[in-house]
């Protein structure tokens, strides 16, 4: 009898709490204390010692915290001069120094890990995100004259070297060629990319996937290595009606869903992490939303592990077993570090 009861409890437990049992909150940063207060976190990265660097777009500042989440230093204020940031910071990256992509000021700020500014690098075009490896900086930007995106390779002084990955998803071809259609094809061809810290390999995926998740692997110099394909966790076709633009006279299907891969991160040489949102709709209303972490094998594209993310957030960085998530929702924005053990 007791055995049966235990068995039942175990089964219930498995079915009730399997979702994020392997995701442990390590540190949470964000409160009403002035040194821990954020107004709109734009990026966060982890270093090898577990320190966290956080840039806040609305507050125009960059901060460093130690691995226990203790405040160490802050720099920045709003402006265009030395030591100042705009209020449209697009990204933060750590690679032999910190790189802040300050879109509003049209420049990259390079700093050491003590938050001392080394130099400013002028941007030649609007970049959406920044990455780096060894002597290369990588930036995602729009391909001139085309409705697609590319990864640009730059040297450490911001001089353009070359571009690669000028593709767009197959479903984009079906878009009617109106002005609004062109604007939407730009949106739906958006990409996310990551750089492996040890090898410099670049992995790129479409943010709005079609029937499968496609991940394209390139060497650090932009030479194509391999395309890997991963299955969706639900049966999914990219709903055509979403490509039509503003749903003014549109009749929505009874049931549909929408998937977005918000970001991709390299955990190590074997594994990639995808930030994977699924929204389920009844007509035009969202009835269910979930955010997952998908871990896929870099060589086969096979799903290794999946985990529900417990808060409405975005993943800013991931390194080995650690995941750095940003949440700007609720009264107090916060940055949470998780440890993923599975």
């Amino acid at each position: 009898m007791i055995k049966k009861l235990l068995c039942l409890i175990t089964i219930l437990a498995i079915f009730h709490f399997p979702s994020y049992a392997d995701l442990k909150k390590v540190v949470s940063i964000g409160s009403d204390d002035i040194n821990y207060r954020f107004f709109g976190v734009a990026g966060a990265v982890l270093d090898d010692q577990g320190n966290v660097y956080i840039c806040d777009s609305k507050g125009s500042f960059l901060r460093k915290y130690d691995s226990d989440g203790k405040f160490i230093k802050e720099i920045g204020r709003y402006g265009q001069g030395p030591g100042e940031f705009s209020n449209t910071i697009s990204g933060l990256y750590l690679c032999d120094g910190l790189f802040v992509l300050d879109t509003g000021n049209n420049r990259i700020v390079e700093l050491d890990q003590e938050l001392n500014i080394r130099r400013y690098i002028k941007l030649s075009k609007l970049a959406l995100s920044i990455m780096g490896f060894s002597d290369n900086l990588y930036m995602i930007s729009r391909t001139p004259g085309r409705f697609s995106f590319e990864v640009g390779v730059y040297d450490r002084n911001g001089n353009y070297i070359k571009s690669f990955f000028d593709r767009r998803p197959v479903f984009i071809e079906r878009i009617e060629q109106s002005k609004i259609g062109q604007a939407l094809s730009l949106i739906y061809s958006s990409i996310a990319a990551t750089v492996e810290r040890e090898t410099g390999e670049v992995a790129i995926t479409f943010q709005w996937p079609g029937e499968n998740i496609e991940i394209f692997r390139f060497s650090k110099d932009g030479e194509f290595i391999k395309k890997i394909v991963s299955d969706h966790i639900i049966k999914y076709d990219f709903p055509e009606f979403r490509l039509k633009g503003l749903p003014t006279n549109l009749r929505f299907p009874d049931q549909s869903n929408l998937i977005m891969i918000r970001s991709i991160h390299s955990l190590d040489e074997k594994r990639l992490l995808l930030e994977y949102w699924v929204n389920e709709y009844n007509l035009d209303k969202v009835v269910k939303e979930n955010e997952y972490i998908l871990i896929v094998d870099r060589n086969s594209g096979q799903l290794v592990h999946r985990e529900l993310l417990p808060l409405k957030s975005g993943i800013a960085d991931a390194r080995k077993s650690y995941i750095c998530a940003i949440s700007n929702e609720g009264d107090v924005p916060e940055v949470v570090i998780y440890r993923l053990d599975y």
Partner: peptide, 13 residues
């Protein structure tokens, strides 16, 4: 005027 940055917030606080 404009968006209040952290520098201003520290001053106000």
């Amino acid at each position: 005027a404009g968006v209040l940055d952290m520098f201003s917030m520290r001053q106000i606080t």
